[in-house]
Amino acid sequence: MEITIVQALLIGLWTAFCYAGMLFGIYTNRCIVLSFGVGVILGDIPTALQCGAIGELAFMGFGVGAGGTVPPNPIGPGIIGTLMAVTMSSVTPESALPISIPFAVAIQFLQTAIYTVRAGAPESAAKALAEKNFGKFRRVANMTVILFAVVGFLLGFLGAFSMDTLSRLVEMIPEWLLNGLTVAGGMLPAIGFAMIMSVMLKKEFIPFALLGYICAAYLGLPIIGIALVGAVFAIKHYNESEKVAAGVAAGEVQEVEHDDWI
C-alpha cells in the first residue's frame, strides 16, 4: 500500500499534536490514540486498533517514573509500528511491536536531548524579564512544547514518507525471526505490568494481586468486572480507615473523661 504525500503530512500533524499533548498531560501520546489517528488517515482502522491495543498494554508501564525521567516513547509502536502493520503484509500487529521498539528508544533519547538543550531556557527567561519584555518571556516559556510539536511532525512525516525504505528493510527479515518477534511481542507487556507493580505494589497489597489473577485467569471476568471487585475491597478499606481514625479520636476523648473522674 502506498502512502500519499497528503497522508504523510497528516500523519506528521497528528504526531505533532499527540506528542505536544504529552506535555499538556492530555494523554494523547499513548499507543492507542496515536495508532488510531494513523488508522483513520490511512483508512485501515481495524489493523490500527490491534496495533494500538497491543502497544498500549506493552507501553502502559513505560510511562511510569519519577517526574522528569523519560521512558521509551509510544510513538515507536503507535506511529511507526502501525504504519508498518498497515502498509506491509508481512508485518502483523504483534510483530510490529518488537520491530518498532528501536524507534521508541531512539525517540526517548531525542526527548532527553530536547530537555537538555532547553536547560539554558531559565537564563533567557531571566534576561527577557530584565528587559521587561513579557512577550519574549512567554515565548521562552512555551518553547519546549513548540519543539515537541516540530519534532513530532518530523517523526510522523518522515516515518510515513520513508515507509518504502523501511519496508525494504523489513522484507529482509527472515520468517523465523518474524515468528520469533511475534512471540516476543506477546511477552513484552510483562515488562510494563512489572514496572507498574514495582511502583505500586506494597506488601499489604499482595492479596489484591492474587485477587486480580484469580478473577482473570480462573473466573475469566472482563477488566471492568475485575476493577469493580477490587473497588469493593478498596471502599471497605477506606471506610474502615475512617472508622479507625474516628475510633482513635473517640478513644482519646474517653481517656480524657477518665482522667477527670480520678
Binding site: 511477552m187 507487556p189 475491597f233
Partner: peptide, 23 residues
C-alpha cells in the same frame, strides 16, 4: 486513604491484566 484505595484497585487490575494480556 484515597491513594491507598486507588492503589488496591490498581494492583487488582494490573494483576488481572498481566494474566490476560501477556501471551
Amino acid at each position: 486513604a484515597i491513594s491507598d484505595a486507588a492503589g488496591m484497585i490498581g494492583v487488582t487490575v494490573i494483576a488481572g491484566l498481566a494474566a490476560t494480556f501477556v501471551k
